[in-house]
Design a protein around this nucleic acid. Structure first.
Lengths: 221, 221, 221, 221
DNA sequence: CATGAATGAGCATTCATTCAT
DNA sequence: TATGAATGAATGCTCATTCAT
């Protein structure tokens, strides 16, 4: 019985933690991290103020907890999808789509991710050095594969490219959160991928050597 | 004499405002917006606390004021440089370089721009709807010109491209601010431009139609 | 047990609110509203600064709260005493006595009432339009009764008389608070009532018509 | 020339002091003493902030200065009017009328007098011990005269009566400042005087001895 | 005399966190 | 576990006053 109770308790504990998470996302998305009090979150989660501290070290930890949980879920889901694919270009496409779909389907979450999680250099560093690095690693791996298979130019730096791609997609997401007119975030996947894969320029018969870019001038026939 | 005094006062006033700006950038870059007290800024600027309020509405306005001033300077400098150039591709290159150089040459400023100015959805919206829009407009204009001159593919959406480019460059800047090992931000200009101009893919003799991307698969001969 | 705890908590809460009230009266009577800090009141009430805000909206509400509580108690006590009496003249006398006794027996309270509560036109208006109106209503009622019973001249306006009586008694109280030599406030009841009931003039066989007062001259035989 | 300039300067100085006084009355009547900043007064008087301090010790002194000036004018005007009269009852009447007319004809001034000047126990004490004492002295003198001439009952205490009369008139003024419906303050003179002179009671053939009041019961035939 | 920029002490209020129940 | 009353440190901002010009 004890173990049965124990497992029920475990479940209830997880449920409550989840409830607090969701309450925090909901409230913080509207009021921002600094505009949200612990009491507001507690009320939204229907627990007492003090109860929050049984599940989180402090207010900041709550934000970090949300972030890590979501990010872990996002990355593992992403990985499981990616792993089933063969073509690295296709994988790249899926990553962008998953990224945009995950945020585009939950505005509150997107708001937390794009805005609230970044108001603090320590969060940013933590983010940058853990989960974001995982993201970059995945993309880097895919790009390397694509390079080995000859689909992506061998000159491009996979790590820098991962950052550039993330940055571009991230900006799409932020812009969507701050949008004045409504549209679907996922629709940004296609043009994003088009530019990253095919580039802006019209003529690639004589692909630009880095040197020629270096010269500050492109030879155009 | 009165006018002379007047102009001297004007200069002193600007000097003091400037001093406060610089002090704020310096202090906030280290401690973050919320980690910085008004008193700290005042002390760093060698003025009394109350003096800040002769030049700024409130603490938040101080941050916004810094942002607007820097951004205006950046944009007008950028425009004057751009205007002297003929080739739109070259212009695009210069924009990216100027962006990275401006931030890469002043780490504190970069920190403020990449992190502190974004801790608040209201700042973000304000930013997004004023200065950032100007930035996008400039890039959009350049891309359109390039399209008219046949240098950039007519299929790409100039506005979305402006966002993507900004996002990629912005991520470069943020990564540099959060870097663990030292490097020059400006060095990111070349690979960024290479990917945006030439794309990732190896073969562009038969450029991807959007439809084929849509299919989730690139036809590679 | 829960209800028992509940009631104990209720009592403790009331006790604490009372303690804060009394501390505020004590401290403000000595230093005035603007000369008193919230911290001083909290310290005097042996609670933390923040605790005050669990019981009061803000510093101003604290003053208003004191006022309303005291005034309600005063009015209801007064009414219960009045109701037991039959003779309206006697009631009038009791009202004056109760008024002077209430203030004369608690100098700090009198100070708050006569001085601190009046430093603000909004307080004055609020006072004037709620509790003071109740006071006036009671006196007016008594005067009307006395008029119906033929004890008070039918020419006098009960509402104006209520104000005049309050003003006279109020001035007695204020003078007592500001006194340089000590005396009992309650001793002012008798002369006050004497003048209001009997008037100043010696001869009333031919009571002054309002018209003759109008003429600016009293006909004295 | 020096003396000529001197006198012109004297006049200008008085003019400026007057301008500041009037500005202060105007602004404080609307915003209250604590709701008014020195800068606001300076702006309303069209002088620099610092200039105020050439004419007044400090903000508080400004209020006191207004009060003393007005009060002196009021008392000396009152005295000159009173002195020309013979009948003490008539004098009493005139005092009440002058009091109500002075305030009733200048709402801002009335507001300052009835509300703002009283938000501080030190002002009150100062007021009570100087100008108000003069007022009481005048009334007391008049009452004594009336008593000597047999117009006012010898039993009444002139000093207490002066306070009561002031209190009643003062309450009329305060009520008028706080009024919700408009009326003329001067109209309160007649009923006020009627009650003070003739009392409330109908029957005065056997004027109440203090003792009978003491008994707590009035003998009514 | 006049100015008004500069000063900096002072204070109400908030809110993350604790802990007795 | 859960509660929520109590805590008290922390801070943005105001504004009366000064003084160099």
């Amino acid at each position: 019985m004890a173990s049965k109770n124990g497992s029920i308790r475990e479940i209830k504990k997880l449920e409550k933690k989840q409830r607090i998470h969701e309450a925090a996302i909901r409230v913080m998305a509207r009021n921002g991290y600094h505009g949200t009090t612990v009491s507001q979150i507690a009320k939204a989660a229907r627990v007492a103020d003090g109860t929050l501290y049984l599940y989180f070290e402090n207010k900041d930890d709550l934000l970090v907890g949300i972030f890590d949980e979501i990010m872990d879920r996002f990355i593992s889901e992403g990985l499981s999808v990616i792993d089933e694919m063969a073509d690295p270009i296709e994988k790249l496409k899926r990553i962008v789509e998953l990224h945009l779909k995950a945020l585009g389907s939950d505005e509150d979450l997107a708001c937390i991710f794009q805005i609230e999680l970044r108001h603090n250099i320590h969060h940013m560093k933590r983010f940058s050095q853990s989960k974001l690095r995982q993201y970059f690693n995945i993309v880097e791996r895919v790009i390397r594969d694509a390079q080995e298979q000859g689909h992506i130019r061998s000159e491009v730096n996979p790590w820098i490219t991962a950052k550039l791609l993330f940055g571009a997609v991230d900006e799409m997401a932020t812009n969507w959160v701050l949008r004045t007119r409504d549209y679907n975030l996922i629709d940004m996947a296609k043009p994003t991928l088009d530019i990253f894969l095919n580039g802006l320029c019209t003529n690639h018969e004589e692909p630009q050597s880095e040197a020629s870019i270096e010269e500050g001038r492109q030879t155009l026939p």
